[in-house]
């Protein structure tokens, strides 16, 4: 028997393969493992951020600070590495701990002051973006041997497909996230809080701890996404990654997670990002269309998915 709860996930997967198939039929070289793995490596930072966002949205919340945290991470990394000559392997744990603490504070404010996640993370977004600009308004290049090594690291798959550091990190993150979401008690609590926070509390779920952890995880992954992002750009810039939080939200929703919380799968988020990536790739292969068409297509997709979710929610017995 096919469980109806898998419908959104199935639709997302099917959609990805249809889009990929259309591209493959229309253009030479589209349907290759190289294009597929480029989707992963180009969007690795977005996948990482979107995985964090999935935890937040599953719990019925939202995190708007993601893009700003990515930019702030880049700026701090570049300053510490280029200006103060720290080794990147020292810098990374420092920013990851700082980012996690930032998320934990937002989570604590949301829980203890009973504030809307929307407004708290909006404040967090302004704070992080502002701090990044105060540190440096200019883009700061990162010049370090380690970054060159990172860029060179990786291995080739058949079909000219390159698996680099970013791809490896993002697949690891996804794997661990799937285990956490679906095979640990903490994962169960995330779904529980998203289903009905009151009931969850009455069933003995520690709300404070769960909420704080969720936002800490999201910020941790946003910081990690910022580090991965700096692998692409070799720099830190306070106005980088503007609106990435919205891309992440879109990916999560297209991936079949309900915005109201409680329903959805980690794997869907990967598919959500890949769908957005495949649309972008299609448009760049075509060459005649403006890249802004990506946004229009994604807008329409989002709309369809929200409509589909509504239908599923309404169609439920009772």
């Amino acid at each position: 028997m096919f469980n109806p709860k898998f419908i959104p996930l199935a639709v997302t997967c099917a959609l990805f393969f249809v889009l990929f198939g259309i591209g493959a039929i229309q253009f030479d070289g589209f349907g290759s493992s190289r294009v597929f793995f480029n989707l992963l490596s180009d969007n690795a930072f977005l996948i990482i951020a979107a995985v964090g966002m999935t935890f937040v949205i599953l719990s019925g919340g939202i995190d708007l600070s993601v893009g700003a945290v990515i930019a702030l991470t880049g700026v701090i990394c570049s300053v510490l590495i280029s200006k103060y000559q720290w080794h990147p392997l020292v810098v990374f744990p420092v920013v990851l701990i700082g980012g996690t603490a930032f998320g934990a504070i937002m989570g604590a404010i949301i829980h203890y002051y009973k504030m809307q996640p929307f407004i708290v993370t909006l404040a967090g977004m302004f704070f992080a973006r502002g701090l990044a600009s105060v540190i440096s308004e200019e883009s700061i290049p990162i010049e370090h041997e380690f970054y060159n090594q990172v860029a060179e690291f990786g291995f080739m798959l058949p079909g000219d497909a390159w698996i680099g550091t970013s791809t490896i990190i993002c697949l690891l993150v996804l794997f661990v996230a799937i285990i956490i979401a679906h095979y640990t008690r903490f994962g169960g609590r995330v779904y529980a809080v998203g289903g009905d926070a009151n009931s969850a509390a009455l069933m003995g779920i520690p709300l404070a701890q769960t909420t704080i952890r969720i936002y800490a995880i999201s910020a941790f992954l946003a910081t990690l996404a910022g580090i991965v992002y700096s692998f692409y750009t070799f720099s830190g810039y306070s106005l980088a990654a503007v609106g990435v939080e919205l891309d992440a939200i879109a990916a999560v929703v297209i991936g079949g997670t309900l915005l109201t919380g409680g329903y959805g799968y980690m794997f869907g988020t990967l598919m959500g990002v890949l769908i957005m990536g495949v649309v972008q790739t299609y448009i760049s292969f075509d060459g005649t269309l403006s890249s802004w068409w990506t946004k229009i297509v994604i807008g329409l997709l989002l709309f369809c998915f929200i409509a589909l979710q509504q239908l599923l929610v309404r169609g439920k017995p009772r």
């Binding site: 169960g188 609590r189 779904y191 289903g195 009905d196 009931s199 003995g204």
Partner: peptide, 14 residues
């Protein structure tokens, strides 16, 4: 209880 979780999850949550 939580309508979005399975019956079994509800019974053993936590």
């Amino acid at each position: 209880l939580l309508p979005n979780l399975t019956v079994a999850q509800n019974i053993y949550l936590g």
